Computed example of a mutant assay.
Amino acid sequence: MPQTAADLLYLESVGEECAAAGAGARELLEQLAPGIEDRQHPRDLSEGQRLSLVLAIQLAARPLVLLLDEPTRGLDYSAKALLIRQLAELAGDGHAVLVATHDVEFVAGLADRVVVLADGDVIADGPTADVVASSPIFAPQVAKVLAPQQFLTVQDVADAMRSEP
């Protein structure tokens, strides 16, 4: 999925786009961006809604390899959480998921490995916790606030609190 998601939309309505994508696309769209009517033209949607539509179309296909460029731009917190669950499910089923993003909170919730690039050079490469927590620039907010502990997400903190005696 390219950074400009609208490049993948070519039909006259949201309903037509979802129907062409096949089973599950409409349901995924409703979860990612509730309330979009089938009769709306994709070009009339907000940037986040267009992104949600393209994500729904791509995720419904359950591709063996999924390449996403900035997939969270314009998504709210609940849509990001749903996207994380969908991508984690695909990865868990053996699909390859590669994401290019600046959204470290998203990375912290999804990735098991991170490669940080700058001007085409690899700056860091390794397990997510090691790479993002080791740099104040790349660390998610939870890691910054709770350093030196190795928490990346609010869920990590909640899980640790539940396991404490």
Rank of each mutant, 00 (worst) to 15 (best):
Asp130His: 10
Pro127Gln: 05
Val54Leu: 00
Glu16Gly: 11
Leu9Ile: 09
Asp76Thr: 01
Leu53Met: 08
Gly15Tyr: 00
Ala21Leu: 03
Val154Asn: 08
Ala19Val: 12
Asp156Cys: 01
Gly92Thr: 05
Ala143Phe: 04
Val122Trp: 02
Ala5Ser: 10
Asp7Thr: 14
Gly109Glu: 11
Phe138Cys: 12
Arg50His: 07
Ala160Arg: 11
Arg73Phe: 13
Thr72Trp: 02
Thr128Pro: 06
Ala5Leu: 05
Ala25Val: 05
Val54Pro: 03
Met1Lys: 06
Val14Ile: 10
Met1Cys: 07
Asp93Tyr: 06
Leu117Gly: 10
Gln86Asp: 15
Asp7Ala: 14
Leu45Ser: 09
Leu82Arg: 04
Asp159Arg: 09
Asp125Val: 14
Val114Glu: 12
Arg39Ser: 13
Phe138Gln: 10
Arg62Thr: 12
Val65Ala: 05
Leu152Pro: 09
Asp112His: 15
Ala118Gln: 12
Thr4Pro: 10
Asp103Ser: 01
Val116Arg: 00
Glu70Cys: 02
Val154Thr: 14
Thr4Met: 14
Pro71Leu: 00
Pro71Gly: 02
Glu164Pro: 09
Cys18Trp: 04
Val145Asn: 07
Ser13Ala: 05
Glu164Thr: 15
Ala88Met: 05
Asp156Pro: 07
Gly22Asp: 04
Gly109Asn: 05
Arg162Asn: 12
Leu146Glu: 07
Pro2Tyr: 04
Ala124Thr: 07
Cys18Gln: 13
Val104Asn: 12
Ser78Gln: 08
Ala21Pro: 09
Leu82Glu: 12
Ala88Pro: 08
Asp159Glu: 14
Ile84Gly: 00
Ala20Leu: 10
Leu83Glu: 12
Ala100Tyr: 09
Ala60Arg: 02
Leu110Ala: 03
Ala25Tyr: 02
Asp125Cys: 03
Val114Pro: 04
Asp7Pro: 13
Ala61Asn: 13
Gln86Gly: 13
Thr128Arg: 01
Leu98Phe: 04
Pro42Val: 05
Ala79Met: 04
Ala79Lys: 00
Leu68Cys: 06
Val97Thr: 05
Ala91Met: 07
Gly74Trp: 00
Ala33Gly: 14
Val99Gly: 02
Met161Lys: 10
Glu164Asp: 10
Ala60Asn: 12
